Amino acid sequence: MEDKWIPNHPGNKILFHTKYDEWEWGVSDLIDWRVNQWDRDKIFTIFHHFDAEAIIRIPLSRRQVEDRMVWMHCCNGKYPVKFGYRVAHMLAKDAISKEESSEQRTENRVWSQLWKLRVPNKIKIFGWRACLNILPSKVNLARRKILIDATFGVCQRFPETVSHAIWSYSAAQDVWASANARIQKCGGEFDEFLHLFQFMMSKLSLEELANFLNWKPPMGQLYKLNFDAAVFANGSGIGAVIRNAARDVMAALSVRGAAVNDNEEAKAGACRTALEFATNAGFSELIIEADNVTVMSVVSSLSPNWSRLGVIYDDVRCLAAGLRQVVFSSI
């Protein structure tokens, strides 16, 4: 009960005692080895619902592999000596700047990223003013008693805030629809443009804000496998498509996935499912392409991964090893 084996869970261990506390059980007893998945009925019978939900979110390997110790605070699961120095530096920095609020630190990171964008300076200044909410929107002008009516003059339905005029308004969304595919995924309503910008910077790289994504067909006799994942409140979704050099769709997949903890887990699981689909469909010469640089760099690396998602990455590598030719690529 005291072992720390549940990632992304308070204390990384079981929180609520059960009537089976005295039972000498192991984690392997909670797995249905016939399908290499968690035994949901047993888990929800034994554990509190809060603990059970966390357990079934732990990714399992498709194969039977040995247990291993991982360092939760590094993405590759290994503890580097420099991590200790980094923590010490962060603690010292926090002690010096303890008067600075978390909100101020977040905004400082926003400004740092904003000024690094490779766009004309006038665009940076416009973005800076939008984030500070000092553009002359009708809401801001009404707040200063310059105008009385703050309704957006085009749609005549909502107040003219900076975020509504630039992002939420239907005509603005039509413009964004022709932009980078990953920008299109950053949908939703945001009360302030600063919050929208923070969300985008957490999802996109600096280059992705300036470049369009163009799909390129594979060369020769190779096939290209593209996959993606979406995260929902009660699960995830996985999509995959295989095309040839003539851009013809050879096979496609769309399935519901398990509940996940974050985007990386969703993309790693989607990669495994997509590669299983391609293998079962008989494709053995593939270019595997996706938009998550982290996932694609890990699965293409020869170094072992000891993170909580290591079992998924190992499954992908085992599947890839059975192909005649495979290339991993990120877009």
Rank of each mutant, 00 (worst) to 15 (best):
A150F: 05
A150R: 00
T151N: 03
F152Y: 15
F152L: 09
C155S: 05
C155E: 08
C155D: 12
R157P: 04
R157G: 12
R157E: 15
F158S: 12
F158W: 11
F158E: 15
P159I: 06
E160C: 09
E160I: 07
E160L: 04
T161L: 01
V162S: 13
V162L: 06
H164K: 04
H164L: 09
H164P: 12
I166F: 11
I166S: 02
I166K: 00
S168Y: 08
S168I: 14
Y169E: 13
A171G: 07
A171R: 05
A171Y: 06
A172L: 02
Q173A: 09
D174G: 07
D174W: 01
D174C: 10
V175M: 02
W176V: 15
W176Q: 05
W176E: 11
A177K: 03
A177Y: 06
S178K: 05
A179F: 13
A179W: 06
N180I: 09
N180K: 00
A181V: 14
R182E: 15
I183M: 07
Q184Y: 02
Q184S: 12
Q184I: 14
K185W: 03
K185Y: 03
G187L: 02
G188H: 01
G188D: 09
E189H: 12
E189Y: 11
E189Q: 12
E189R: 06
F190I: 12
F190V: 12
D191I: 13
E192A: 14
E192K: 10
E192P: 08
E192W: 10
